[in-house]
Nucleic acid binder design. Structure first.
Lengths: 340, 340
DNA sequence: TCGTGACCTTATAACGTTGTACATTACGAA
DNA sequence: TTCGTAATGTACAACGTTATAAGGTCACGA
């Protein structure tokens, strides 16, 4: 590991340290002759800036953190991918951090994760509440990503319009002629804000279609995993009569549900239609492939990074914004059947 | 964003800056009285160290980078998870970087990714060769993770024993009485080292079972994705006679193959048994669930991080090591059938 | 009472970079 | 020739931290 400093380059080129720095930073007032000579020295010695020193001097690291519950959940992995790319466009590097959705780790991330080392934080909290955020002194600029927190808090918030998206999903099932539309992933507690919003969208669609809400068909889950979806589906199939459609509040739940349906020999979509939410890659390839709401992850990431950049530099104290990314209904086999 | 420096704490506690630093760093020779007074000041002011300054002074960032092809591929996402956890145990933070498997980005990662900013690099290259690595001047300590590079190069290398693992997988199919065992993911070129190793294991198992190698049954793929697996499986089914078992060189290929089998109405495992490699989470939950080789990802990550730490501090110039993590054959429905 | 250590604390100087203020040069106009 | 002005380069200090070495304090034995 060779270490070449500005001083070494300066000596080699016969100029001052600051002139080399000026060349490195593309400062305007450097003669072409000097620039060329310095550049040659830079190349010859293979200069690489020491970012610690630069950060110390400028007070900026160009590093942002992305804190999310679980990296190996496909939705978050795909989102992280988008965020990294979006950040690159702004010259930012992303530090990914997992919270496991545990309150204590989330708190740690906001308050202490590599303190004074990140310029900003993109945060997908599960357990943390607004109040917690405001309590923490000296936290970096934060933009909240995703739907777990309700609107109206202390930081910018970027998410899809969950109510509208859920309404669209439910409406799709209604249009297929389904009457007994179950929900897997109903809010187990008041803190599950996403679930509440999606349930609201579901209710609106039912109301519009003049279908009476049957509380039996609303199944809460502990976690949003395949196993929970599978168990919930089993419960639903034991009802009399069973539902003719299921709206799962994320794709993993839906995949679990599909598995149960397959095991029990229930035909999808003819007997039970299934729709998910997230559009993870797996949903395109499972069998039957899964109809789902596809949030525009690219837009989500782009909006979030842009909002964070804004807050980091231009307008740190502007009023919190509420930003919505688009979504799309992707119709696949789990509601439309297999094509010939 | 409040900024509290050691100086502020020192003034507040009525001691020197260095004494505060000593307390922060748990230095031995500080009286309990002083330590307590300083600690109180630290707490009251909410001191957070400036890591840029610390890094500048100590020359270490305690930051390592993990460079892998695609974060949204489940195997890598799960591996990244393990690496982050393993690094935490050593007090290291992991900076995750995606290369897309493109040579140019991989080169960039090794030579210039946040230069002088990371203490070490964990690297899963796809395109890069050993020679490239040695050419790059002043690159940080590197440990190679995964099987894409052959053994015997310029850096430590951590992987599962691909030959042994592939042999075990093939042997499992043999034990089920299968005779026409196809391979999806055979090496398309000489650079696909993993594939070559796995093919070697496959051949050994056939030899041991006295089954003649049929080159028709070896299907190369462009990428290791579901779509490629699906396409390859279609080709295999058109053979006469078709294979009675398929060894896919990763789980995604296998999932693609399963989808084709299901579409064509071929029974798994009775007509065709399928086995994968990686044990991604999806394999436990797909239908039929997928028999696969499960590399010990935790061990893989642990070994890699430990080797990197070793190289970063203790023995930077020791001879390159070749390290193997364990693996396990996980029998599921795609070879064993559904249990009652 | 005065050394003499042992133990604790502090002043000072770096680490490599960039911002500020100033020095130098070139060149056209008076 | 001299001056004014803009263009370009330089010296120095500072960012917040830790390492070094020197200084201070105190208990204790002579």
């Amino acid at each position: 590991m060779v270490r070449v400093r500005l001083k070494d380059v300066a000596d080699h080129a016969g100029v001052s340290v600051k002139t080399v720095s000026n060349v490195v930073n593309n400062w305007e007032y450097v003669t072409d002759a000097t620039r060329e000579r310095v550049q040659k020295a830079l190349d010859e010695l293979g200069y690489r800036p020491n970012l610690s020193a630069r950060s110390l001097r400028t007070g900026r690291t160009n590093l942002i953190a992305l804190a999310l519950p679980r990296l190996h959940e496909p939705y978050f992995a795909e989102l992280a991918d988008c965020v990294v790319r979006a950040a690159e466009d702004h010259g930012l590097t992303v530090l990914i951090s997992q919270t496991d959705g545990r309150r204590e780790r989330e708190q740690q991330v906001v308050s202490g994760f590599r303190p004074q080392f990140i310029d900003g934080l993109l945060f997908s909290p599960l357990a943390l509440e607004w109040d917690d955020l405001e309590e923490i002194p000296g936290h970096p600029p934060v933009v909240l990503l995703g739907e777990r927190l309700a609107a109206g808090g202390a930081a910018d918030h970027v998410a899809v319009d969950n109510v509208a998206a859920a309404q669209r999903a439910t409406q799709h099932l209604v249009e297929l002629g389904r009457k007994r539309i179950a929900v897997i992933g109903a809010p187990p507690s008041k803190t599950a804000r996403t679930a509440s919003l999606r349930l609201e969208g579901y209710k609106r669609a039912l109301r519009k279609a003049r279908i009476r809400l049957d509380k039996q068909l609303l199944l809460p889950v502990n976690q949003l995993h395949r196993a929970d979806g599978a168990a919930a589906m089993a419960t639903l199939l034991d009802l009399a009569p069973p539902p003719d459609a299921v709206f799962c509040f994320n794709d993993l739940l839906a995949l679990g549900a599909l598995r149960t349906l397959q095991e029990r020999g229930v035909a999808v979509p003819s007997e039970v239609a299934v729709i998910g939410f997230d559009d993870i890659e797996e949903s395109r390839f499972c069998s039957p492939s899964l109809t789902t709401i596809s949030p525009d992850k690219k837009a989500l990431a782009g909006l979030a990074v842009a909002a964070l950049v804004q807050r980091m530099s231009v307008a740190p104290d502007a009023a919190p914004q509420e930003l919505h990314a688009g979504f799309e209904l992707v119709e696949r086999e789990s509601t439309m059947g297999r094509r010939a």
